[in-house]
Every structure is written in structure tokens, then in C-alpha cells.
């Protein structure tokens, strides 16, 4: 099975890397992250590191989400519309193998994106941290907290989050008929995922009726809580505030949703007419 999935993933990865859309978003993300450097001209004190980090996290979240919706949809529909899928699926390649190969290729590109932005952000923070720390010491302020393992953990969480979004988009793409529909519905699903925490919070309160509670329960089980993955600020700038085990639990949560969406995607794709 892997002997067929990996070549598909490899070709998908190479194809995605060559796409102008990916190149444009990657350059934009790196440029925006770099654009935070002139902020040092404003005297923020210890806040400078927070501003740098927040901008990097925001870029990763926004442009990463855009990429995670558009790229898998584009890669799937390029195969279907150009009819390369016809050639591939006439071979002894299962629908699940095809979908998994597309997913892994797209996910690898998204990982390159997240790691590249995180690496640049890490370099910027490492560059500025000594000066900010020296200034804090001069002014008798608390030294700035900065955790590079926290940044690595955040990058890992982003890779997981982008994987969940990519799997969600592929599931929608397997059901949908057009690229545009997939992207629009995918974007709405991502937005819903960013807002699921509100339903999760509401579910904790006891003042709901059975129907409302049922609706909240269904929505919190169907959509992943994507907001939970945005712990960058806490992980990097206040590492002590993140409870032990949070990152592994989030990774496990991401993995279960990822598997769920891929499975649903396969169920939708297995009877699709090519």
C-alpha cells in the first residue's frame, strides 16, 4: 500500500511546491514576518518580543489556513479536471491510496510552510532577545521570557492544525463537484472550527435545555476546535502557563480528527465517477 501512496505523495508534493500560489503565500508570509522587525523603532520594552511573536503566529494562522484550504482542493481538482486521475486510478491504485497520497503530499507542503515561518520567527526572536533582555536589565524590569522549545511545539501544533484543515478540505473536495465549491465550503468549515470553542464553553454551562445541549454536543464532535491549537503566545512567551500534557493531547485530538476526515473523504470518494 505504501509503495503506491508514497509515489503519489511525492509527485503531489513536487507539484504543490511548483505552484505559484504556494510560492506567493510563502513569500508573503516570510515578508510579513520580517516586516515586524522595524517595530523595534517603537519603544515597547519587553513587549517587543510579544509583538514580533504575535505577528508571526498571526501570519502562520491566517496564511496557513488559506493555504490549507486552497492547496489540497487545487491538487485534488487538478487531478480530476486534467484527468490524470483517470490514468492513476485505472492502475492498481485504490481510492483510499490515491486520497491518502494526495493528503500526505499536501500536508508535507503545509509542514514546509509552517516550519519555514516558525524558523524565520525563531531567528528574528533570537536576534532581538539579547537587546531586549539587556534593556530590561538596565531598566530593572523583569527579564523577557522566551522559549525556543515552545516555538518548536507551536510549529508542531500548527503542522497538526494544517493537517486537520487539509484533511477536512479533501473530505469536502471528495463530496463536491467543483474546486470553487470546495474552497468556499472549506473556508466556512475552517471558520466554524475556529469558533467551536464557543460551543465547547457553552456546553460546560449547565443552563441549557436538552435540545440545545444536543446541538452543542453534535457541533463540538463534528468540527475540530481549531482555536485550541493557537497556543503560540503562551508556549513561547509564558511557557510556565501551559499545563503539562496540553500539547500531546492537542496532537492526539488533531490526529483523531485527521483520521476521521480522511475516512469520511474515502467513503465519499470511493464511489465517485472519474
Amino acid at each position: 500500500m505504501l509503495a503506491r501512496i508514497l509515489p503519489i505523495a511525492r509527485v503531489t508534493f513536487l507539484e504543490a511546491l511548483r505552484q505559484r500560489f504556494f510560492g506567493f503565500l510563502l513569500v508573503l508570509a516570510l515578508a510579513l514576518t520580517l516586516a515586524s522587525l522595524p517595530l523595534k523603532a517603537i519603544d515597547f520594552g519587553n513587549q517587543e518580543l510579544k509583538f514580533l511573536a504575535d505577528l508571526g503566529f498571526g501570519v502562520m494562522l491566517l496564511l496557513g489556513s488559506v493555504l490549507a484550504v486552497v492547496l489540497p482542493a487545487q491538487l485534488l481538482y487538478a487531478e480530476l479536471d486534467n484527468r490524470t486521475a483517470l490514468t492513476l486510478l485505472a492502475k492498481p491504485v485504490g481510492r483510499a491510496e490515491f486520497l491518502l497520497g494526495k493528503f500526505l503530499g499536501a500536508w508535507a507542503v503545509l509542514a514546509v510552510f509552517a516550519v519555514a515561518v516558525a524558523a524565520l520567527l525563531g531567528a528574528i526572536l533570537a536576534l532581538r532577545e539579547p537587546e531586549v533582555a539587556a534593556r530590561a536589565a538596565r531598566l530593572d524590569l523583569a527579564p523577557p521570557e522566551l522559549s525556543f522549545p515552545g516555538l518548536a511545539a507551536h510549529a508542531l501544533l500548527q503542522v497538526a492544525r494544517l493537517g486537520v484543515v487539509a484533511a477536512l478540505t479533501l473530505m469536502i473536495g471528495a463530496l463536491a463537484r467543483t474546486f470553487l465549491y470546495t474552497v468556499v465550503v472549506g473556508a466556512m468549515a475552517v471558520l466554524a472550527g475556529q469558533l467551536v470553542w464557543i460551543a465547547q464553553e457553552a456546553l460546560r454551562r449547565p443552563d441549557h435545555g436538552a435540545v440545545a445541549k444536543g446541538a452543542l454536543w453534535v457541533s463540538t464532535h463534528l468540527f475540530p476546535n481549531l482555536q485550541a491549537f493557537n497556543l503560540g503566545e503562551a508556549l513561547v512567551l509564558a511557557p510556565g502557563t501551559v499545563e503539562a500534557g496540553t500539547v500531546p493531547w492537542l496532537l492526539l485530538s488533531g490526529a483523531t480528527y485527521l483520521l476521521l476526515f480522511l475516512l469520511l473523504g474515502w467513503l465519499a470518494f470511493r464511489r465517485r465517477e472519474i
Binding site: L14, E15, N82, L86, A90
Partner: peptide
């Protein structure tokens, strides 16, 4: 072995 009508392959390969 199957050759579809008007085949299209990944152009970069």
C-alpha cells in the same frame, strides 16, 4: 494497461 483519450500528465516530470 490503459491510455485514456487525450491524456494529460504532470508537466514538470
Amino acid at each position: 494497461g490503459f491510455l485514456p483519450e487525450a491524456p494529460y500528465f504532470h508537466r514538470f516530470l
